[in-house]
């Protein structure tokens, strides 16, 4: 269960906004996290507390394939992103990195900046404590759930390698 304050951003937030290329000279989550969202607004991340939740419009994470984007969000203490929809590469990356991604379509309008949210990642239920509303996100496809159940892509690959040995 995740519990935090919602920080809303608009539609088509690209990975250059999440972590500008000039910061891609490291793979360290803390360093990347310190510069998270610098491409949207200088110092944006300063308003975020550890455990807070990002809430975005359509096509979150479009653009570059940089895995540094979900790593930066995690490094900044954001464990969950809720969006209208996600860009394809970002979705896979977030999933592989253990960032919780919830796609909720038009229901995203039911969450406002500063709302207090409780998120159950297993059931996909979002409880907006501020408004009292409950939102159910779209389920994760079974194949991807299988990877999650193994503990992510890295253990999944370890198993595949073992099957071949």
């Amino acid at each position: 269960m995740y519990h935090g304050t919602a920080h809303t951003v608009g539609a088509h937030i690209d990975t250059d906004a999440i972590i500008p290329a000039r910061f891609l000279v490291t793979t360290d989550p803390a360093e990347l996290g310190a510069n998270c969202m610098e491409g949207l607004e200088a110092g944006w991340i300063k308003k975020v507390k550890n455990g807070d939740i990002m809430v975005a419009g359509e096509n979150f994470g479009c653009g570059s394939s940089r895995e540094h984007a979900p790593v930066a969000l995690l490094g900044a203490g954001i464990p969950v992103v809720i969006a209208h929809s996600f860009a394809r590469i970002f979705y896979r990356n977030g999933f592989n990195m253990g960032l919780v991604l919830l796609e909720i379509g038009d229901d995203v309008s039911k969450i406002h900046d500063g709302d207090e949210l409780k998120v159950d990642a297993d059931t996909g239920v979002i409880n907006n404590v501020t408004t009292g509303q409950t939102i159910q996100c779209k389920p994760v496809p079974p194949f991807m759930k299988g990877i999650l159940d193994k503990g992510g892509l890295i253990p999944y690959v370890q198993d595949r390698l073992a099957e071949r040995a």
């Binding site: 653009g63 570059s64 394939s65 940089r66 895995e67 979900p70 590469i89 896979r92 990356n93 592989n96 990195m97 892509l153 890295i154 999944y156 690959v157």
Partner: peptide, 24 residues
């Protein structure tokens, strides 16, 4: 690299992914 899709011009199914997918 997200522009891996370039090779579609040659009739290749080519797509960008993140580093961990590529490591796999």
């Amino acid at each position: 690299d997200s522009h891996t899709c370039t090779y579609g011009g040659l009739g290749a199914f080519a797509t960008g992914m993140g580093s961990t997918d590529v490591a796999a």
